[in-house]
Amino acid sequence: MIEVVSAARCVTCDICIRVCPTDVFERGADGVPVIARQGDCQTCFMCEAHCPADALYVAPFADPVPPGSPHADEDVLGAALGEYRRLVGWGGGRTPGSRLDKNHLFTRRLRS
């Protein structure tokens, strides 16, 4: 589930609010999105891929993490914020991940 919106990194572009398929975010008073409906998060990682500021972190669990979890601690997570965007290959100077797709290699083995 979405666990971290980094106020330090956020550029208040509203993209995450706009693209979340389950409408999890609301705009906070300072413009930084707040996780208003975490229970609706389906852990699809799409917000993290679309965030241009690497300000989001989706923990890999289908339920909220307990208090004190490193998965909700921006300082511990560091470079993990926005990592999925890097893997998808979005952002300036990156190669689209689809260009590197090797799906056909192992689907060939699966068919054999």
Binding site: P60, Y84, L87, L100, D101, K102, N103, L105, F106, R109
Partner: peptide, 24 residues
């Protein structure tokens, strides 16, 4: 049961498959 090539191919085929593993 995946070869080294297949492991690399998996990573490139659907990167979010590995997020739950890498992040844990």
């Amino acid at each position: 049961r995946a070869t080294e090539d297949e492991r690399r191919a998996m990573r490139l085929a659907q990167p979010n498959f590995f997020l739950p593993f890498d992040r844990q």
